[in-house]
Design a binder for these strands. Structure first.
Lengths: 245, 245
DNA sequence: GTCCCCTTACGGACATGTACGTAGGCGCGG
DNA sequence: CCGCGCCTACGTACATGTCCGTAAGGGGAC
């Protein structure tokens, strides 16, 4: 099951490479990109180097790549959401990052992916071959710098997240999470979370029950409001910031 | 106190820059470098770009740079040990990494240090100006690639550490720590830890007491032996690996 | 010899895990 | 088009456990 999904992806992507389409609108579920080209690191890179970018779609909970799989492509979320995670042998999971529209993910320095990636909801991505990027970086300092920038951005997030996982209380973690998501995906003061409580827990190093309890407590204190479990309005960001250690 | 220490460092480093000494043996506590030039990322870079590398010394517990301070220099440990950490407002601390002889630290993509750094014991470092590295990277793709490599290495460690902090038990964390230190600083099957139990705890997201309890338990099980609290011999690495989730 | 660090014991707190009740979404059938 | 029922996800309560915090004693390093 695992391997079948991979195999299918590779075949389609091969076709896309053969057609050399800059944007393959024949890809299943392809949609127009809502990402502004000006603020788009992918566009900057492909523009500079004339790289071929394809598009692809993943259904909810579909694996994009596995841990320790060869890193053939670098991805950018067009629409939807992606989780990057590591697993322990008994199934315990740590989500290292959520990737939202505009985010680049799957960029590796080495030859394999250090984390696995799955679509949280139906997701469209743009992708380029890692080899192409590496080659371009070998001759163009601007590209090389861009790759460094993106890895450094991931490192910054990881450093902040280590502090959260190692030293923050459950309530502080949830407050941090809400402020991060508010910053990254709030529209008109409201955010529509794509991920379930378990994903949030595995991101924050908590159980889904602890996340649920913390959110309920914040709700009863009037710090946030719900419109369904995943539609959240922050009513008191200052209060939330003061909770975030 | 905090600012006085910084001021003194900056003044001495300024002198070193003025003298343009490649290796300033007049720096306090300077010692010959035990780092092999061939496997030395600093030597690779400075060799390529003809950068000026100075040396400097820090006493036990001395601050090397603070969180959010301008990142003027990039460092390499010659001898001793360094901890990089973040603090919460109430003093809770998360150590993100230990830097041992040969390790490069303090490399930032942005203009400020995202973590603070302190000498764990008396420590000698080699350092180069960040601006020089950036300039060299702007013209030399090899340098640019090297910088990316180092940041990517830090990211890999951070990703592994997020899994530890978010999902491993106390015993698993200590087992992971012991195997990491064994790999990085064991000589003749024995390791001499430079850091105290509190540092270990703040690295692993535990208290020093929990670390102590775990080590005692491993000792009573014959997995490790002590020659003083910080001299440890691993007697059963396989057993330890099986404990590391 | 002195001091700091480490160890160890005990009580307690926070988060967990289990269990169960509930609500909302979706498909199916009418 | 509407209503029903199933299913997944979410909320809540209680018992448990792991880890923490305090405190006191011991040992090694300088």
């Amino acid at each position: 099951m695992y391997h079948i999904a991979i195999r299918r992806k590779e075949m389609v992507m091969l076709n896309q490479s053969i057609t050399h389409s800059v944007v393959n609108t024949n890809a299943p579920h392809a949609v127009p990109s809502p990402v502004a080209p000006a603020a788009n690191p992918f566009a900057e890179i492909t523009g500079h180097a004339g790289l071929i970018a394809s598009e692809f779609s993943y259904k909810k909970d579909e694996e994009i790549y596995g841990e320790d799989e060869p890193a053939e492509y670098v991805y950018q979320v067009i629409s939807g959401a992606v989780r990057s995670y590591k697993l322990l042998s008994d199934g315990r999971r740590q989500i290292g990052a959520f990737h939202l529209p505009g985010d680049v993910f799957g960029l590796e320095f080495g030859s394999v992916h250090r984390l696995a990636a799955e679509a949280i909801i139906d997701t469209n991505v743009r992708l380029v071959k890692r080899r192409s990027l590496e080659q371009a970086a070998g001759t163009d300092v601007t590209i090389a710098r861009k790759l460094w920038t993106m890895t450094a951005g991931d490192l910054r997030h990881a450093e902040d997240h280590m502090l959260l996982l190692g030293r923050k209380t459950a309530m502080e973690r949830v407050a941090t999470f809400l402020l991060e998501m508010d910053r990254r995906l709030a529209v008109a003061g409201m955010m529509a979370l794509p991920m379930c409580r378990r994903d949030i827990g595995d991101y924050l190093g908590l159980t889904l029950e602890t996340v649920s309890r913390a959110l309920s407590q914040l709700h009863s204190q009037g710090v946030l409001g719900f419109s369904g479990a995943r539609q959240i309005v922050l009513r008191n960001r200052q209060r939330l910031r003061s909770m975030d250690a």
